[in-house]
Design a binder for these strands. Structure first.
Lengths: 348, 348
DNA sequence: TTGAAAGCGATACCAC
DNA sequence: GTGGTATCGCTTTCAA
């Protein structure tokens, strides 16, 4: 099947290319009619011919002439990370419904690669970008500003007036996690966190501290900082739990999925059990949380909302209707989820 | 910063646009020199000016003129499924290194959506597609053939002479899983599978049967078919385990991650323990496998290889160098993996 | 080695 | 409502 162009359709339908262009770009009005300055009968004929011939618009040509690509780029650190792949999934969906195509890429947490990727997608005339910045990517992101490409930041923040932002309130996330445990009657609540202070983690720490102080439990505040490297991390968590067991610690906040995994591993190794020896509040989602009985309470980020809001915000920025460029979303505590069903979010 | 075109570079460098085009498209030879019919000094000057002006090729224009897009589409059923997101990650990586851009999309296992997506990406002049077909997508895929767009099938098969294929040998996967258990000294090995026969699952079943027969254990062959729906499935697995416990079953093959989850759930509910009451061989990857001690043996598909082979095959097809269009990959049994380290594949 | 000029297929502008 | 045509930025002959 050889390519059929707008000219072929025009010739076959006995009209000008202009008319065909009008018809092909017309959107459906509410009444089911095309809203374009074309005679409905003509329009119908053109549509019929286009379909019969199998016409498909050449986006390269359209983009070249119109300067619009209806394409956005999404760059995360690792699309195989379930946090990001979930977000990407929803971004793709939302964008698809708006007639926007999405190009995805992973930066590998590498500012140089991010910089290259930005160059690449700029070459594709993307109209906007949604980026989860990595450490040291300030220079790369400056290009977005230089080229005047609307950009929305997700997951991590970065200075810059021009960026849109869709971020989760991590102070609140740490706060509700802690408050839940306090409500359960626990007082000796501790936390395990990483030494290297990513803002999302330090924010969760602050939320923990805030909740403890509000409850008059400031004397029990105890944040155990572990290495990022897996082997060392596992060992440190194990030691922490061993001591905590003697100390009479009642509960732990494990603010990332990986830290939670170390926690469960330590439990296993030390022969401890979850409701008996400690209580946990974990973060993100893992099969392990669902397998325990009762289900391990965990704080999840509103991934779909992050995705939808970022696409919408980016779209507004592209169309020049900039309202509020900084969107803050709340994390949710899941206490009654069960395998194969919707998680139930608790509010209190 | 306004757009700088090839003309601006040409004017600034005092050469023709042709030369600039040559230089910008030249690839580096082994000797570090550009292999194009341009005076090295001129080339250097052009390069310098292009960089200084911040020139970036307009891909829409290049694509329009040359008829090439250097873009492929990848359509899987759900990019947030870790199996696919891992593959996509590697596809993206491989393609990126070849200078190819990738557009990802999810079909939702919906043939109509798949059909729309194919239309959309055809409009983007993609040069090839990598597709995980869903049930009933024959008609949609026929368009790829009609439009003469090279297409590689992954994960699931579908009839069609023109398609390339990168599939995993699932009979072998079921076979090695079973054989491992037999080597461990077990005889009463059973399997849990879904009623609805996707080929990947029925193949694994056949592998199980084959291994059992070869070992003279045909009398113990027992495949429990469960519903796909989660609540019913969980219940059926629980019942199966309860009976099996009485019957003296020694081991189970759980041929998908989800079925494995149901298995662990049943274990929990019934108060059974893994090395004591049963042995498992599971499939795919899950945090749960790693948490158990010893680590639950599991069969994994070579995701990176699937990704790399499919990109390479597609590239060959696009370039017209079609060699072997049907690639079969072996799954691997992981018996000694531990959290945070490379899984160790056992061969025997 | 270099350059002039012809399009690629659509949209935008203007005239009717 | 409709149609003619210049043009987007680049690659690609072809000729010098």
């Amino acid at each position: 099947m050889k390519k059929v162009t707008i000219r072929d359709v025009a010739k076959e339908a006995g009209v000008s290319v202009t008319l065909v262009s009008f018809v092909m770009n017309a959107k459906m009005g509410k009444d089911g009619r095309l809203d374009c300055p074309v005679n409905p009968n003509t329009a119908r004929r053109v549509l019929e011919v286009a379909k019969r011939l199998g016409y498909r618009r050449n986006n390269a040509a359209a983009s070249l002439r119109s300067g619009r690509s209806h394409t956005i780029a999404v760059i995360v650190s690792d699309i195989s990370n379930s946090f990001f792949s979930d977000i990407c999934r929803h971004i793709e969906n939302t964008a698809y419904n708006m007639g926007t195509t999405v190009i995805f890429a992973s930066s590998d947490e590498n500012p140089d690669k991010l910089s290259n990727l930005i160059d690449t997608v700029i070459g594709y005339n993307v109209e906007g970008m949604i980026i989860a910045p990595c450490l040291g990517s300030e220079a790369a992101l400056k290009k977005a500003v230089d080229y005047n490409i609307p950009t929305v930041l997700i997951d991590r923040d970065m200075p810059g007036e021009d960026f849109g932002r869709v971020l989760v309130d991590n102070v609140d996330a740490g706060f509700i996690a802690t408050k839940y445990l306090i409500h359960q009657g626990f007082g000796k609540i501790e936390m395990v966190s990483y030494k290297s202070g990513v803002t999302s983690l330090t924010d969760r720490e602050r939320g923990y501290e805030k909740a403890m102080e509000e409850a008059g439990l400031q004397d029990y505040i105890n944040i155990h900082k572990i290495e990022y490297e897996a082997v060392a991390a596992k060992k440190m968590v194990r030691e922490t739990f061993k001591d905590a067991s003697k100390r009479g610690t009642e509960a732990f906040i494990l603010p990332t999925k990986k830290i939670a995994l170390y926690g469960f591993n330590a439990l296993n190794v030390l022969g401890l059990n979850l409701p008996k020896d400690f209580s946990f509040v974990c973060f993100d989602e893992s099969d392990i949380y669902d397998l325990n009985k009762p289900v391990v309470p965990h704080v999840i980020q509103p991934l779909q909302e992050i995705a939808e809001k970022s696409v919408e915000l980016l779209n507004d920025m592209v169309e020049g209707e900039t309202k509020n460029k900084n969107i803050s979303l709340k994390a949710k505590l899941v206490v009654g989820g069960r395998l194969g069903s919707e998680p139930i979010a608790a509010t209190f």
